[in-house]
């Protein structure tokens, strides 16, 4: 009786393990293949393996890519910072000053999530160029990307800050902290991990964005627009190198955060009281 139960149990475990592995393959196989191929001599059929860094050399030789990288970083950083600031101010406002129209305010902040990126790109171009007479440049691309970024950042910051006890700020103020000092001394040190998370997401969104940036930039290159444009000449090896590098960077950042957390050097989240 027991042995039958045990056997059924071990089959169940095995099935679950296989399922889990399939899921991981589904998620990561394409990415790992690109990284593998970027180091191969023949990117079209990279088997049997023969390694070279030619693709990377080609990537670094091409000045278009470094311009594009710079522009994408500027757009990502600018939009990330702007989105995080606006979203944080919005969340604090919504949570600290209760209003009967809270639901409406929340929806208004989140609505850009449901607008197609293409539409944000076209409409910000039309608005900036036709109505305000502004030229398309990095600043307008930052602003347009921050529309979507703010909505995402708002969602992330909101999810964390609903747990924050605003009485903490009352306490700080009774003990002599002005509102600005209270924010720096008490609120920010407690909530910064969620702001950091919101910044990361809105940075990546803007960094990766093609549609919104394209309409606002025209001929100014960004990484996605250069990668997209180069498709006309087929999948070049430098594209594989670019994809591998971008992914490697993201993995490195998350690995670093993980190590910092495990060693307790940095605490992401609350020290529960």
């Amino acid at each position: 009786m027991t042995s039958v139960g045990d056997r059924a149990e071990s089959w169940r475990r095995l099935a679950m393990s296989v399922l889990l592995c399939l899921l991981y393959v589904f998620l990561y196989a394409p990415i790992l293949f690109v990284i593998y191929a970027s180091f191969s001599e023949d990117i079209v059929w990279p088997f049997p393996p023969s390694f070279t860094t030619d693709a990377y050399a080609e990537l670094f030789d091409n000045s278009l890519y470094s311009d594009a990288l710079n522009n994408s970083l500027i757009i990502g950083l600018g939009s990330g910072v702007l989105s995080t600031l606006l979203a944080t101010a919005g969340v604090i406002g919504v949570l600290r000053f209760p209003s009967r129209r809270r639901a409406l305010i929340l929806i208004t902040f989140l609505a850009p999530l449901f607008v197609a990126e293409l539409l944000i790109g076209i409409s910000s171009l039309a608005f900036n160029a036709r109505l305000l007479g502004l030229p398309g440049n990095l600043f307008s691309a930052i602003a347009a990307n921050a529309v979507e970024g703010t909505a995402f950042a708002f969602l992330i910051v909101l999810a964390q800050l609903v747990r924050y006890d605003w009485q903490m700020d009352d306490a700080a103020m009774v003990f002599g902290a002005s509102p600005a000092r209270c924010f720096w001394e008490v609120t920010l040190p407690t909530i910064w991990p969620s702001l950091f998370g919101a910044f990361l997401i809105s940075f990546i969104l803007a960094f990766n964005n093609l549609e919104i940036s394209f309409y606002n930039l025209g001929a100014i290159p960004t990484l996605p627009s250069v990668a997209w444009g180069s498709l006309r000449f087929g999948l070049g090896p430098e594209l594989f190198a670019l994809a591998a590098l971008t992914n490697g960077l993201v993995f490195a950042v998350f690995a670093l955060m993980y190590v910092l957390m495990r060693t307790g050097i940095v605490k992401f989240g609350y020290r529960g009281v």
């Binding site: 903490m168 009352d170 306490a171 103020m173 009774v174 002599g176 009281v273």
Partner: peptide, 20 residues
């Protein structure tokens, strides 16, 4: 007068110590 100018001390039910 705002609270931070009153120089009053306060003790709260849920302590409200600054966790960081």
């Amino acid at each position: 007068m705002p609270p931070y100018k009153r120089r009053i001390g306060m003790v709260f039910q849920n302590f409200l110590l600054f966790p960081h």
